[in-house]
Nucleic acid binder design. Structure first.
Lengths: 189, 189
DNA sequence: AAGTTAATTTAACATTTGATAAATATATTA
DNA sequence: TAATATATTTATCAAATGTTAAATTAACTT
C-alpha cells in the first residue's frame, strides 16, 4: 500500500525498500480542528509535521502582538528548526488554520534511523536544505521590498494563503499592520 | 602540526584522526587583498570559505543598488547556500572587506569524503544547521523591529562590523538608506 | 602637503507606514 | 433570524523612512 507522504519523499531523494518501510512505521496521522495549536510556545521541537490537508502557520508573540513567521501548505516540512537544531525551547507555536489531517514524525525516532539508513538521513538533510534556501529567499524579500511588493510576492508564491487566511495573520507575516495591508489592497481595486 | 580551522571544527563536532587528516588535505589557504571578490556574481557556489583573518560580506544588486546580505568574521562558514543546495548560479558575490587570509574547501572534494567519513558529513551538516538557525533569527529581526532597533542589534551581535565596515554597506544590510542610518547614529550621540 | 576622490552628515520636503478610533461587513452562536 | 462577536475597511493625524542635494569630513594619490 503506497503512502502519499512516502511517495512525495521519493521524489525528493531515493529510498531503499527497507528504508521506505522503516520510515513509514514512524509516521503518525492525526486530525486537528481549525485554530488548534499543533505545538505550543515553550515546547522544544521534537516532532516534524507535514500536512495531508489544510493550512498551518508558525507564530510567536512580539511585544504582545501575534506575529506570523510563515504559512505552510500540504506536503511542506513544518518544524521549528531554530529549536530543533539548538535543542532549546521554542518561542514559536504551530497552529492549524483550517481543519487538517497531519502527518507527524518524532525526530528522536527519525534520527535513530540515520546510522542504519543513510538514504533517510540524506532525504531529511535535503528537506532541511530546501527549507534553508526558502528562508534565505525570504530575507531578500523582507530586506529590500516595500510592503506593497511583499504583498505581490506572497500573492504569487502562496495565492491560497491570500484566499484562505485572515488578513491579520497575513499582515504580520509581511511585517506591517492590518490597517496598512487593508490600504494596500484598496489601491489595487 | 595542529591547524587552527581543524581545531575549531573539533569544537563543533568530533573528528577521528583519519577524518582530521583527510579534511586537512582539502583546506587551501589564500591571501586576498581588501575589496576583492572571493567569488563573483554568476558563479555557482562550489567552494566553502572560512576567514583566518579579516572581514567579508555577501552582496548582490537589487534595482542597481548594492545590497549587503551578511557580514562574516573569522572562523564563520561563508557560503552561498541558496546556490550550493539548489545547484544554480548565485546572484550574490563574496567580497573581502579588509586584506584577509582565507581558508577554502571545494564542496566536490568535501562531499566525496562523506561516504567514507561520516563524522565529516555530520560536522558540515552541523555547520549548515547553525547557519540556518542564524538565518531564521535574522528574519525575526527584519520582520518586526524598527531600523533603530535593528541597528542596536547589529551593534550587540557584530560590534566589529560597526567599527570596521563603511556605513553604506551596513545601511543596506539593515534594509535602510545611508541617510537614514546616519540619522539614527546622530540621535545616539 | 595639496589636490582629488570617496564617505558621511545635514537639511528640506515627499511618501510610506503606524496608531487610534470609528464605521462597515462578515461570521458565529443562541 | 436576531444578536453578538470578529474581521475588515476607512479616516485622521503622527512618526519613520525615502529622496535629492549640498556641506562637511575623511581617505587616498601624486
Amino acid at each position: 500500500m503506497s503512502h502519499a507522504l512516502i511517495t512525495y519523499f521519493k521524489q525528493i531523494s531515493h529510498l531503499s525498500e527497507s528504508s521506505e518501510e522503516a520510515l513509514k512505521a514512524l509516521i503518525h496521522t492525526q486530525s486537528i480542528p481549525k485554530n488548534q495549536d499543533l505545538q505550543h510556545i515553550g515546547q522544544t521541537c521534537k516532532t516534524l509535521y507535514f500536512l495531508k490537508s489544510g493550512l498551518a502557520r508558525i507564530y510567536y508573540f512580539h511585544d504582545g502582538n501575534d506575529v506570523t513567521e510563515g504559512f505552510y501548505e500540504p506536503f511542506c516540512l513544518i518544524a521549528r528548526a531554530e529549536s530543533l537544531f539548538a535543542g532549546v525551547p521554542s518561542k514559536k507555536a504551530i497552529q492549524v488554520l483550517e481543519d487538517a489531517e497531519v502527518w507527524s514524525i518524532s525526530t528522536k525516532d527519525l534520527f535513530g534511523l540515520y546510522d542504519t539508513h543513510r538514504d533517510i538521513e540524506r532525504l531529511f538533510t535535503r528537506l532541511f536544505e530546501g527549507a534553508y534556501v526558502q528562508t534565505i529567499q525570504r530575507i531578500e524579500n523582507l530586506q529590500f521590498h516595500s510592503a506593497d511588493e511583499r504583498y505581490q510576492l506572497l500573492a504569487q508564491e502562496q495565492p491560497e494563503v491570500l484566499r484562505r487566511v485572515p488578513l491579520k495573520y497575513i499582515a504580520s507575516y509581511l511585517g506591517i499592520t492590518q490597517v496598512s495591508l487593508s490600504r494596500i489592497r484598496a489601491k489595487k481595486s
